[in-house]
Simulated assay, not measured.
Amino acid sequence: MAIVLLVRHGRSTANTSGTLAGRLPDIHLDATGREQVDRTGARLAEVPLVEVVTSPLERCRETAAAITGHHGLEATIDEAVTECGYGDWQGRALKDLADEDLWKTVQQQPSAATFPGGESLAAMQARGVAAIRGHDARIEAAHGSHAVWVAVSHGDVIKAVLADALGMHLDLFQRLHVDPASVSIVRYGARRPDVVAVNTAAGDLSWLRATRPEEDAPVGGGAGPRA
């Protein structure tokens, strides 16, 4: 079973200004975001990546470039892992959106939330999960069960993918945190997904070079990865 590293883009100019960027063009990483993705790229430099898939939005492509530069890879752009379609909400200040009735639904029952002129969170999860699982199966078929790959996407999309892997209802996905430039790790298997890590911002990942697929969870927790 392959391993996917879910990487959120670094901090963007919209994050800094408190704006919901959505799919607006020309939203780039800010100075802090560039530092963040450089650190993430360095963390992944020793990991034997076989592919990097990214959202088409600039902040994700800039993040992907900080990773591919260490591996001689060219990122694959996939619209299916792009940001949620926030419709009429995109471009507005988060502090103003918090006064909308829909904001409460997004927080408390996201499975029922559909953004005006945009996408529902349920539809976002469905296409994001389908894309990640599809790429994972394709990459494992092409590169074998030890393959490690990266998907660069957005906070809500990654949270929704993690919720699916954890067997959580979408209504619980706001309990998850996915920070800018963070790395979450999922191994999909024949029996169930194995969520190895969530929202990591530091730490050695070179142990991924020595991973071996295991179908069953070790009773008692096991000895951990072999470095």
Results as ranks from 00 to 15, higher is better:
residue 109 Q to R: 15
residue 154 H to C: 11
residue 141 A to I: 06
residue 167 G to Y: 01
residue 122 A to E: 14
residue 124 M to C: 13
residue 9 H to V: 09
residue 99 D to T: 15
residue 194 D to W: 09
residue 226 R to P: 11
residue 207 W to F: 10
residue 39 R to L: 13
residue 151 A to E: 00
residue 154 H to R: 11
residue 171 D to L: 10
residue 92 R to K: 15
residue 28 H to N: 09
residue 119 E to A: 11
residue 50 V to W: 02
residue 84 C to R: 05
residue 56 P to L: 08
residue 14 A to F: 01
residue 203 G to L: 07
residue 81 V to P: 07
residue 140 E to C: 07
residue 224 G to P: 04
residue 164 D to N: 12
residue 79 E to D: 15
residue 19 T to G: 03
residue 31 A to R: 12
residue 119 E to T: 12
residue 175 R to G: 15
residue 62 E to H: 10
residue 221 G to Q: 05
residue 45 A to Y: 01
residue 201 A to P: 05
residue 181 A to Q: 00
residue 72 G to Y: 04
residue 17 S to I: 07
residue 33 G to C: 06
residue 66 A to H: 04
residue 179 D to K: 06
residue 119 E to I: 12
residue 151 A to D: 00
residue 126 A to F: 09
residue 210 A to Y: 15
residue 227 A to R: 15
residue 87 G to A: 11
residue 124 M to D: 07
residue 162 L to S: 02
residue 103 W to V: 08
residue 84 C to H: 08
residue 15 N to I: 01
residue 201 A to T: 14
residue 198 V to T: 04
residue 75 A to Q: 13
residue 114 T to R: 14
residue 37 V to T: 04
residue 216 D to M: 14
residue 149 W to C: 00
residue 88 D to R: 13
residue 165 A to D: 01
residue 100 E to W: 10
residue 145 S to G: 08
residue 141 A to Y: 03
residue 11 R to D: 07
residue 216 D to K: 14
residue 28 H to E: 06
residue 84 C to L: 11
residue 60 C to V: 09
residue 24 L to C: 06
residue 39 R to P: 06
residue 161 V to W: 05
residue 86 Y to C: 02
residue 134 G to H: 05
residue 68 T to K: 02
residue 162 L to T: 01
residue 12 S to M: 05
residue 159 K to E: 11
residue 7 V to N: 02
residue 61 R to I: 11
residue 221 G to H: 04
residue 178 V to L: 08
residue 94 L to S: 05
residue 42 A to K: 14
residue 194 D to N: 10
residue 186 V to M: 00
residue 131 A to N: 05
residue 207 W to V: 03
residue 84 C to E: 03
residue 166 L to G: 08
residue 28 H to F: 10
